[in-house]
Simulated scan of single mutants.
Amino acid sequence: PTETAMPPTSRAFLARLLHGARNALLVGGIAVSVGFTLGVAAGLLAGYLGRHWDGALSLLMEALYALPGLLLALLLAALMGPGIYSSMLAVGLSMVPAFFRVARAGAMALKAAPFVEAALALGAPPGWVMRRHLLPNLLGPLLVQASLAFAAALLAEAALSYLGLGVQPPNPSLGRMLREAQSFLPLSPYPALVPGLALSLAVLGFNLLGDGLRDRLDPRR
């Protein structure tokens, strides 16, 4: 085989693997932050204010939830061009409905609590009540959702990079390493095995973290 068809050396492969993992964590962190911020804000407004706010925001979230993440990534790639920023935005927007549902359900359950009614009786505005009373009491389930969403974001980023819509060359990514490793499989399996194993362990770790946070933050325990 020619030199271009040979698998990379161990040192170059390790460097690409570490940089690809860093890019995956960066995309996952920004995407979860986008989904968390937009979803929690919309969920608190819909759950606490209700009426027209609840109807409009719930309809918007249902429309966003019905839009596949890959189709949303294709749309953003057409508008912004394929790259790390469009993949961050696409993965983040696909996570907004999940955070919205958690925040909305919690706000609806807590808005009739005695401490909320006491704050309203003292003249506290709705924004202050949501920020000082509702949000701190919802951090437990929201953190659990964030850890699970991070694992999903890693898989989504790898899928987008595999299809050429995520991180672009020369920046490495785990998804593109898996795609490039297909041509090396007859020569050596490790260019495909190692990135896949790293991605699987990262997803497993964040899922286990979510399970641990759920058990730790459950008030019934």
Rank of each mutant, 00 (worst) to 15 (best):
L70H: 01
L71Y: 06
L72E: 04
L74M: 14
L74Q: 03
L75A: 13
L76D: 00
A78Q: 14
L79C: 15
M80D: 04
M80K: 05
M80I: 10
M80N: 04
G81F: 07
G83E: 07
G83K: 06
S86N: 05
S86P: 06
S87E: 11
S87L: 10
M88N: 07
M88A: 09
L89D: 08
L89C: 06
A90T: 03
A90G: 11
G92H: 05
L93H: 02
L93R: 01
S94D: 06
M95C: 12
V96N: 07
A98Q: 15
F99E: 07
F99Y: 15
F99W: 08
F100P: 11
F100Y: 13
R101V: 12
R101T: 12
V102W: 11
V102C: 11
V102R: 11
A105F: 05
G106F: 03
M108F: 09
A109S: 12
K111S: 09
K111M: 08
A112S: 14
A113L: 00
A113G: 00
A113M: 01
P114F: 05
P114E: 14
P114H: 06
E117V: 10
A119H: 06
L120M: 13
A121G: 14
A121F: 08
A121M: 13
G123I: 05
G123S: 04
G123Y: 04
A124H: 11
A124C: 12
P125F: 03
P125R: 09
P126S: 10
P126F: 02
P126G: 02
G127H: 11
G127A: 12
W128Y: 15
W128N: 13
V129I: 13
V129S: 07
M130D: 06
M130C: 03
R132S: 14
L135D: 05
L135E: 04
P136K: 05
N137Q: 15
N137L: 08
N137P: 03
L138R: 09
L139R: 12
L139P: 04
G140T: 02
G140D: 05
G140C: 03
G140I: 02
L142P: 06
L142Y: 07
S147R: 00
S147Y: 00
L148I: 06
L148M: 09
L148H: 02
L148Q: 01
F150L: 12
A152T: 14
L154M: 11
A156N: 10
A158P: 00
A158V: 07
L160E: 08
Y162K: 04
Y162D: 05
Y162F: 14
L163M: 11
G164R: 00
G166Y: 04
Q168G: 08
Q168E: 07
P169T: 05
N171T: 12
P172I: 01
P172Y: 05
S173L: 05
G175V: 01
R176F: 13
R176D: 12
R176K: 12
R176V: 06
M177G: 01
L178M: 15
A181H: 06
A181F: 07
Q182S: 13
S183E: 15
L185Y: 10
L185V: 15
L185G: 05
P186C: 11
L187W: 10
L187M: 12
S188M: 13
P189V: 12
Y190Q: 14
V194K: 04
P195I: 03
G196N: 03
L197D: 00
A198Q: 00
A198C: 13
L199V: 02
S200F: 14
A202L: 15
A202R: 02
